[in-house]
Design a protein around this nucleic acid. Sequence first.
DNA 1: GGGAATATGAAATAATAATTCCAATCCATA
DNA 2: TATGGATTGGAATTATTATTTCATATTCCC
Lengths: 281, 281
Amino acid sequence: MDELVPRDFETLRATILDRRETLPKRIAQIAAYALDNPDDIAFGTAASIAASAGVQPSTLIRFAQQLGFDGFTSLQQVFRERLRERNSSYDERLQALRAKADAGAGHRAIFDGFVAAASTSLNDISRTLDEAHLEDAIALLAKADTIYVLAKRRSYPVASYIAYALGKLKIRNQLIESAAGLNAEMVAFATPADAVIAISFSPYAPATIEEARIISEQGVPIVAITDSSFSPLAQFAKVWFEVAEADFAGFRSLSATMALAMALTVGVGEKRRSAGKKRKA
Amino acid sequence: MDELVPRDFETLRATILDRRETLPKRIAQIAAYALDNPDDIAFGTAASIAASAGVQPSTLIRFAQQLGFDGFTSLQQVFRERLRERNSSYDERLQALRAKADAGAGHRAIFDGFVAAASTSLNDISRTLDEAHLEDAIALLAKADTIYVLAKRRSYPVASYIAYALGKLKIRNQLIESAAGLNAEMVAFATPADAVIAISFSPYAPATIEEARIISEQGVPIVAITDSSFSPLAQFAKVWFEVAEADFAGFRSLSATMALAMALTVGVGEKRRSAGKKRKA
DNA sequence: GGGAATATGAAATAATAATTCCAATCCATA
DNA sequence: TATGGATTGGAATTATTATTTCATATTCCC
């Protein structure tokens, strides 16, 4: 043995590419197949992989041995490890990144942390979103005259994006902003024929809660996006979604909330378009 | 057989959680282990998994059979398929989802589309972000008296989040909003001792470009987040980032931009904190 | 073109892993 | 507390899969 055995996928890949020219035909064939279909190597049996690649199982083993492994099985470990890595819970990565950032490991670590927090949140909501709630919420919003959008502080960016998207889709909407202190008046215009999208996470902005309470007492149905069933928003809402956003460096991600918000918005647009002919006539 | 066999991981997971209460002790033990360590199930052998979970291999097989599989092997397929899925390029998934949404496959497909678009964008920026630019941008912003934040329309939510985060971090900042039409005056206050974060994507909001031009002519350094080197913002900027956001149903994701924006913001906070003693004294 | 070294195919063999079976144990119920 | 049914442990069996072997083919020098 004149060499170290590649223990991780990237090294292995580099080694293979490096020797590509010098490999015998069939071995090169399996080498190419391995780089093109790493998942198959990870999961398949020697026989099945060999068949897919159009070689004999023994060739596959020779390939592994040529790379310094003692057999196909240990080569396969590297491919499996790769999947594990790639897949290793974002939560763990996030944990590691938080530690790294705390230790002052540069700004790239901070950036990676935010990316990981966003990814975690997206994974999470993807798993937990209740489809029936989504349908209910869209149905409710689609028949509203005006959609009011209510969110402050940290959640405000989501509200402003919803308002932008609704505008683009030509859906009448009103963002309840606090700039001029006219919120109470704005809220007073809402009727049961309208609807509200309200967004708030712990610690809940008091103004959001208060306005949600008032508006629900006027009989206006509310779709809420919040973070737990104990949220005061949940009790005012006709339909509510629980969204758990991962946080990093003290700032929670908005990615999951954004995705849900956009799905609601575009969903409403779709629903109106397909139901439009009847009503608008 | 009184039931359908779960063919995908999510269904399987739901089935397991559903029956958790009614399962015999050892079976419940392996069930919990399976949900906690899905990767181990995907790659391990019946014997190794059983050992890790503290049960007999036969129990593992009974577990599988109880769920309707005909053995451990077919149960394992589901866990392997999950890894394959998770790992299969988000781009391909996005493609499929777009088609599905176009075909009117319900609102869940729309939601999945936005999640996939966000994930794709995050993956992408994670790969392509230039670390040196990040350092430069943070250095530039950290020494600014006031950070001006400039973005309209689609990018406005990002700007508002930046402003919120800067405020939280006690960093003086000014969001250039258009509400009262006083932008020109606001912009006129900026000096070369300040800095700007400007965000704009094609089709570039004319107001953003115009204000960026004016402010750069006043000698105020600009950090830009935009989508190509041809962007008019890029030419006014001292440092600029290229961010490619995937789009779905006509709306581009903001997740990558958000992650970058947060990294800049928190990065500036960090830098100020570590340099603070010198300057503030 | 001849011959040695190398590469390949196919089947035999060895290893490993899944499954089955049965005795022992646990648990609920009368 | 006895009894039947369900559950569990552990070894025996069966199936599957990796590896080895050897005969055959190919390639590369001289």
